[in-house]
Amino acid sequence: MTHLGQRLSALIDEELDGAERDRALSHLARCESCRAEVSALRVLKRRMNALGETAADAELTGRLIGLAGLAGLGSMSGGPEARAPWPSASWPGLPGSDRMTAGSWHETGRPGWHVLGGSLAVLLAGLGTAAFLMGGEQQAPAPRITPAVDTYMLQNDLVNGVVPVAPAPHPGDKPAPHGP
């Protein structure tokens, strides 16, 4: 049985027309694995939608920034109490490197940029992977066909006015097609 494959996402997006949708639903009725995949994709879509709504929540954003210690970053850029939020060792020769002492990250106990950068990296990697998977060519499910080239060559010869002598039959030869 040929599964729906990439057409699942089109089904969830309601992009299939009547006949294609009927065929897909008919397949889903029979195929447990495709049903499971549809459920998983619907959950993913719901979460993506929820993500879009959450992104607009300024209060939550503020709380997250506060947790990540970005308030300190803001003061570093403009105030005299600036302190690097990342763990660092001394950087000889660099202005202000005397203040970037080892262990400052442990002192604060807040991951700061590491958490934010890691989260962003994971998010980007996840989005990239999802985009790559979702961006595949969507092909209609079709049977796998191996061309019966011996039969085709025979027909080609016949059309060109030549009948080959019947070769000795070999086990496993494909049967010649018969006209309707």
Binding site: D13, G52, G128, A131, L133, G135, G136
Partner: peptide
Amino acid sequence: HDPDTDFWQRMERGFRRLASWANP
């Protein structure tokens, strides 16, 4: 023939689809 899809074309199509999903 089926169109040749390079990596970036595939990624672009995927991001468009994901963006449509994230659109409330």
